[in-house]
Nucleic acid binder design. Sequence first.
RNA 1: ACAGCCAGCCGGUCUGUCGCCGUUGCCGCAAGGCAAAGGAGGAAAGUCCGGGCAGCACAGAGCACUCCACUUCCUAACAGAAAGGCGCCUGCGAAGGCGGAGUAACGCAGAAGAAAAUAACCGCCCCUCAUGCGGGGUAAGGGUGAGAAGGUGGGGUAAGAGCCCACCGGCCGUGCAGCGAUGUACGGGCCGUGUGUCUUGGAGGCUGCAAGUUCAUGUAAACCGGUGUUUGAGGGUUGCUCGCCCAAGCCGGAGGGUAGAACGCUUUAGCAUGUAUGGCGACACACUGCAUAGAUGAAUGACAGACACCCCGCAAGGGGCACAGAACCCGGCUUACAGGCUGACUGUUACA
Length: 141
Amino acid sequence: MHPHVSLTEPSMPRNTFPLKEHLKSKKVIERLYAEGTSVTAYPLRAVFIEQTADEQEVIAAILISVAKKRFRHAVDRNLVKRRIREAYRTSKHTFVETLQNNGKRMAVAILYIDTRHNSTAFIKRKMERLLDCIIAKSQIQ
RNA sequence: ACAGCCAGCCGGUCUGUCGCCGUUGCCGCAAGGCAAAGGAGGAAAGUCCGGGCAGCACAGAGCACUCCACUUCCUAACAGAAAGGCGCCUGCGAAGGCGGAGUAACGCAGAAGAAAAUAACCGCCCCUCAUGCGGGGUAAGGGUGAGAAGGUGGGGUAAGAGCCCACCGGCCGUGCAGCGAUGUACGGGCCGUGUGUCUUGGAGGCUGCAAGUUCAUGUAAACCGGUGUUUGAGGGUUGCUCGCCCAAGCCGGAGGGUAGAACGCUUUAGCAUGUAUGGCGACACACUGCAUAGAUGAAUGACAGACACCCCGCAAGGGGCACAGAACCCGGCUUACAGGCUGACUGUUACA
């Protein structure tokens, strides 16, 4: 067969974050901030809400937000958002699998609440903890 | 060679792993997958000017409001650029910075000063032999102020003063040069500073791509077009006034709301240290060549390593690598910026 097939074997999940998985709907975002549950793993904070299959096509829809108040320049905001995106992209698999096994769907906003930069490795560690916390908190309720 | 000044340009490169965005091609019923070539700036920034583009408005007149202000010229336009002109300031210099229409009328200019415009506080001179008092003359000297009745010198006088003279500055008139701002020569008279209102000339409809267009779902008295109307209220027309226009009913069409999707959306007032022509120049014009972000809760990356560059160190090595991220598109301005390159020119030193 074609040589590129070996790159996409199911045993090695790909670290992707396509446009589909971005949370965009204004209605959902408004409801999320009004009714959502929040959990913090400093410098990250997540606000999340459960969704039905009718409301949401993907298992997890993510919104990444860095406030202008905390980073004045657009360059800095972009850098932080890109680092958070990389952290989510590379550590989302167990989170998504757990949701899928429980038959749940979620909309999550990830906020950056520090006013200084942190390294990509640090943000990745905190991201893993944040996603664990979301699972823990949502199954208690 | 070092220091400087002006103009222009650059402002990392390569490799690997994992990703994102739209485009094209292939595969797939579809979801999607694979491949290829692309994917932030000189300021993308501030949003301060000027346009293009779009919608709405617009019979006309006046007032008000806002902006501009040396001259000529360039431009689609400008508060921008080019060339030139005057005054002041900084620098040994190359050069740089700042300012500019008018002043008839009115106001203000402080706790300065005697006095801020038909000026007498001290001083000086005369009336008067002397002193004091009183009266008068005087803007040369004193102190105040951003500014003190054009400045300097001489004559003159009781003491003084454009009272007179020379030179200089300003103003007015005439001649000459210049398209012009101005410059210059001669003559005249004898001239207070800043600022605001104001006056003169010029420009200006309003709102901005969340503009706006189309599609989808779809029930009305709300909207649009046509026809049509009497009085008054009312509404619209740019903020106001005059003036002008609108309305009921009937006939026809279909909206509002919902950021759902597509278009607008990137090839143009485009760029060229290419060539020819015109121009001192900005630039114009002709030919030739070159152009590849187009997102929309917002992609253009993250990480690792190597190289280049800079700093510290004898070395091993260590540290640093600017300002900063497109949001309809252009022309400017302003602000930020590690380091580097090129070309004119200036100063100092050295050599021949």
